[in-house]
Simulated scan of single mutants.
Amino acid sequence: MAEAKTTEIKQSDETHKISDKRGNGKLRREVWVDAKGRVVRYNLAYINHQLFQGDNGRVIGYDNAHGAHHRHYFGGVSPVDFVSFEDIEERFAADWSALGSGR
Rank of each mutant, 00 (worst) to 15 (best):
I47C: 04
I60L: 03
V33T: 13
G75W: 13
D34A: 06
L51V: 10
S12Y: 01
R22E: 10
H66Q: 09
A35R: 04
G61E: 04
V77Q: 15
T15I: 05
D13K: 07
E8I: 08
Q11T: 01
A45V: 04
A94L: 12
M1E: 09
A68Q: 08
H49G: 09
S19L: 02
G75H: 13
Y73F: 15
G75L: 10
I60F: 01
H16T: 09
D13N: 13
R28A: 12
R103C: 11
D55G: 01
Y42M: 09
K21N: 07
D13L: 11
N64W: 13
A4P: 12
K21V: 03
E86V: 14
G54A: 14
K21G: 03
A45M: 07
E30G: 00
D20P: 13
E90C: 02
Q53C: 09
Y73K: 04
R22M: 08
H69M: 02
R103N: 11
I47A: 02
E30M: 02
G100L: 12
V80H: 08
V31T: 07
N56P: 02
S97K: 11
I88V: 15
V80C: 05
H69S: 06
I60D: 00
A98P: 03
K5P: 00
W96T: 12
Y46T: 00
A45T: 01
S84C: 13
D13H: 05
T6R: 02
G57Q: 00
S101V: 06
S84G: 10
G23W: 01
A4L: 08
R29L: 10
D95A: 04
V39R: 03
E90Y: 13
R29S: 04
Q50L: 13
S97N: 09
S78N: 08
R71K: 07
V59W: 00
V31M: 14
E3A: 01
S12L: 14
D87K: 07
A98L: 10
V77D: 03
R58S: 04
D13E: 05
D81W: 03
A98Q: 13
G25A: 06
V31G: 10
H72M: 14
D87S: 14
L27C: 01
K36E: 05
A93Y: 05
N56E: 13
Y62A: 07
A35T: 08
F82S: 07
Y73T: 10
I88R: 09
Q50F: 12
D20Q: 11
